[in-house]
Design a protein around this nucleic acid. Structure first.
Lengths: 343, 343
DNA sequence: GTTAGCACTCGTTTCCAGCGAGTGCTAACT
DNA sequence: AGTTAGCACTCGCTGGAAACGAGTGCTAAC
């Protein structure tokens, strides 16, 4: 049972996978013949298919149905059978047209990107918003909302804005808050968030600061403001999943929508893709998340320079049109990287 | 066929509606008798039900099923039959525990609120984020992102932050941007957004401004930053809809999820609730949105003083537990109003 | 190694009978 | 006149049997 299939077996497996991707129905020996022009008889195909099943590439739902590719088959398919033909021109144009920056905030940009991914791919788009931690400090600002209520606004590279409301012990004037902002902006200019955090802690030991209550509370506030509030996920086009015949079963569908709402698990999955360059593919159970059984995820990270800003991708059935989706995800990630790079 | 039903008919209708709300199945004459202690025979109930059908309060799916309340019946029910018993203590406690302000931004607060609404009600939560237009100016800030790329941050009352990225024609230094912010903050302090907009336009005619390019571009920028980007909607707990037996049909469900994704229509519906005080209820087709057929929406607006900030509510099947949902929505709206009121 | 032929498997569809919940009508009762 | 018992009737649902058909695996021949 050698794992290295011969050329013919590979071609047949490829045909079966592509057939199944387009029809969503178990494919039988005659179907392979019909739609692809092999110069072989059904019986021969059957023999090959039987071998492929033994090697774990195919499975039969029951005796008298055709066969269905396994996760292993898809893995082989995306790794060595599939030849990427690059992104289609009209798709590229559509993505470029829909992803713009001007006049939006970053959250909006990413949400629109997620929606674009879903619309173009006809599956579900997912974008993991940038995390603060890995990023570079740009600006901090405190705004007085009420007597003691203060809004902290933190801006990092690429225009990512995080803001938080909190309450101060003492009442501070708007001018005080302005001075605090200035002090911190000078102090923290150009540092990474890691460094910012360390710097704030160091500075709190500083003698001058110890005797200046204003500076002291400035540092205390910034410490609170810096607490990373966890990443945000934008999942758009969930309804596209409903079109997939394999999820016609109500129970299965509930599970998927629950998984979409339970964003933490998705975040941890996408976190794993953060560091990897290029396109990443999880097929079915490979994600180790039982709730995503039957689903595949194609992701790529976007970045400014060496900094990974976030991850975007497409979720669809394992029976996904990888040949189309992979270039889409790849291109979109690169486009967003460029857009967020402030020159 | 007098529209004013006698007391007995009302009581029977009420019993039918409540039965249907809890079972989701057409209710027959015997069921009414079983679960509520009417001193009547099934035959009498049947006669009454027949009358109620003629008046348009009931409908029968087919001859041998029981009967189902119509939208008209629910309307009568919420308007005059239902007696609200106020919110349950444990629900109130749960809502209060889940809705906090400190350490979050407003978007996060509202999203969490939407989630809370869905969790407590077991239906789907919806929150329409505050619109800028109706609100009071607090702060504006420009942050330099790249050579020409600028981030504008606009804060209004309650801590609502709106930010936008745009590009300037000329390169401006960080100090320039700081001066611009200060100038505008002085100029616009305490005005409503309406007044802010007018003030900016007036000021652009000012002689002093005409000769100061910095002031001029400050005003131009603020004009761009002020453009309202439309309201944001947070819909959480969509998966709860899947639990409702009436949406077991795949087609129906697709329609609902599409409607949830097509947020514009929902926004326009919620906009209609903005001005109304107290709890608002749309039953089924009353919303005039065909995609929401079979769904009811219970909403209430939240506000600071005279200003309506936004609308929140619950979406569920017309067969919704109004008696439970109405107090929940009412209480949550009041709570959020209080929380966003910066004293 | 490949192919034709054939028996066999097994899910799907169709049809029909029987069941039961619920109604509407009529006639009797208070 | 309103209420009730009785009864025939409707109609969706359930379950089992039969027919169907797609697809396989095996064997024997090429």
């Amino acid at each position: 049972m050698s794992e290295s299939l011969n050329e013919r077996s590979k071609r047949i497996l490829e045909a079966i996978i592509e057939d199944y991707i387009s029809t969503a129905e178990p494919v039988g020996s005659r179907a392979v013949l019909h739609r692809h022009g092999f110069a072989l008889s059904p019986a021969t195909i059957r023999n090959v298919m039987s071998d492929l099943e033994e090697c774990g590439f195919l499975a039969s739902p029951h005796t008298s149905a055709g066969r269905v590719p396994t996760a292993k088959a898809y893995r082989l398919y995306v790794d060595s059978l599939l030849q990427l033909r690059g992104i289609a021109e009209d798709e590229e144009a559509a993505i470029r047209r829909r992803c713009s920056i001007i006049g939006k905030d970053v959250a909006e940009i990413l949400k629109d990107t997620s929606r674009t991914l879903s619309t173009i791919s006809h599956y579900t788009g997912i974008v993991l918003a940038p995390r603060l931690a890995a990023n570079i400090f740009r600006h901090i600002e405190f705004v007085k909302l009420g007597q003691r209520r203060i809004l902290a606004i933190l801006v990092s590279e690429g225009g990512i804005v995080q803001n938080k409301i909190f309450e101060s012990d003492a009442e501070l004037s708007a001018a005080d808050l302005g001075r605090m902002s200035n002090y911190l902006n000078d102090l923290l200019h150009g540092l990474t968030m890691e460094q910012v955090r360390r710097r704030v802690l160091e500075e709190m030991q500083n003698e001058k600061v110890l005797y200046d209550t204003l500076l002291k509370s400035a540092l205390e506030f910034s410490e609170q403001a810096l607490e990373d509030e966890g990443s945000e996920v934008f999942i758009e086009g969930q309804a596209n999943i409903l079109e997939q015949p394999e999820f016609a079963d109500l129970e299965k569908m509930k599970e998927i929508f629950r998984a979409f709402e339970e964003k933490n698990t998705l975040v941890s999955l996408l976190d794993r893709c953060m560091s990897a360059r290029g396109v990443n593919i999880f097929i079915g159970a490979e994600s180790r998340l039982s709730s995503l059984e039957g689903l595949s995820i194609v992701t790529s990270s976007f970045r400014t320079g060496a900094n990974t800003l976030g991850v975007l991708g497409v979720i669809g059935p394992t029976r996904m049109g990888y040949g189309k989706v992979i270039p889409i995800v790849d291109y979109t990630a690169k486009l967003i990287s460029n857009l967020l790079n402030s020159q």
